[in-house]
Simulated scan of single mutants.
Amino acid sequence: MTKVLVVEDNPMNMELTVDLLESYGYEVEQAEDGSEALDIVNENSNFDLILLDIQLPKMDGIEVLNHLKKSENSKNIPVVALTAHAMRGDENKFINAGCVGYISKPIDIHEFKKTVTYYVDS
């Protein structure tokens, strides 16, 4: 079964994201901040995809991404930025930082499914 880690501090965004992913048949784990996400990945690196909010408390998403990409356990797990940052150049900034893709919030349900499916099936 496809396993996705969602790193999101907003409860409403987390609920929507998890509900969507579970409706697609994916197994979902949740982390509310970067340090929790890193702990989860260190304990279990069998994720097929990580959806990473960029604006997180304590440690921002770019810092979390840097830790993920440096770790042998997680460096090959595709990470998609999931963020309200939707200014020109933001997508390139996150791709250059090491994300494989970008989903802007609020989530467009149809685009979300296409994007997630693309990275899970790649």
Rank of each mutant, 00 (worst) to 15 (best):
L68H: 03
L16H: 10
M87C: 13
N42F: 09
E29C: 04
I40E: 08
S74E: 04
I50Y: 03
S74Y: 09
E29W: 04
D48Y: 03
D48S: 13
M14S: 10
I40D: 12
N44P: 00
L16A: 09
A86D: 15
V41W: 01
M14N: 09
I40Q: 02
H85D: 13
D53I: 03
I77R: 06
N66T: 12
E29S: 02
L16Y: 02
S45L: 00
Q55V: 11
I40Y: 02
I77H: 12
A81K: 05
Q30S: 11
V28E: 06
L20R: 08
N44M: 01
V28I: 03
G61I: 01
L65K: 03
E91D: 02
L82W: 03
I50D: 01
D19P: 04
K93W: 00
A86I: 07
E36V: 12
L38N: 05
D60C: 09
D60I: 08
I54N: 04
L38M: 15
Q55N: 15
N92P: 09
L16S: 03
D19F: 03
N96E: 13
E29Y: 03
E22W: 00
E22P: 12
Q30V: 05
E29D: 10
E36K: 13
P57S: 13
E32F: 05
N96Q: 09
K93E: 07
L56C: 09
A37Y: 00
I54Y: 00
L65R: 00
D33P: 01
L16N: 00
R88W: 02
M14D: 10
S35P: 05
L38F: 04
N44E: 05
A86S: 14
E43G: 07
E36P: 03
A31C: 11
D33I: 08
K58A: 11
D39S: 12
D53E: 07
N42P: 08
N46H: 10
E15F: 01
D33F: 12
S71K: 09
D90N: 08
S45A: 12
S35Y: 14
A81H: 04
I77L: 00
L20E: 08
K69H: 10
N66A: 15
L68V: 04
L20M: 15
Y24E: 10
V18Q: 15
Y26C: 11
E22Y: 10
A86R: 11
S71Q: 05
E72K: 12
L21G: 02
A81D: 04
A84D: 07
I77A: 06
S23D: 15
L82Q: 10
E72V: 10
K58G: 13
L51E: 07
G34V: 06
D33K: 11
D33M: 11
L49N: 02
I50V: 11
N66G: 08
E91C: 06
E63H: 09
E72H: 03
E36A: 15
K93Y: 07
M12Q: 14
S45M: 06
L82M: 14
G61R: 01
I54W: 05
E15Q: 15
D48F: 01
K69M: 11
I77V: 13
M14A: 13
K75M: 14
I62N: 08
D53H: 11
L65T: 03
V28D: 10
H67F: 05
E63Y: 00
Q55K: 13
L68T: 03
D60N: 14
L49R: 11
D19K: 05
V64Y: 05
S45I: 01
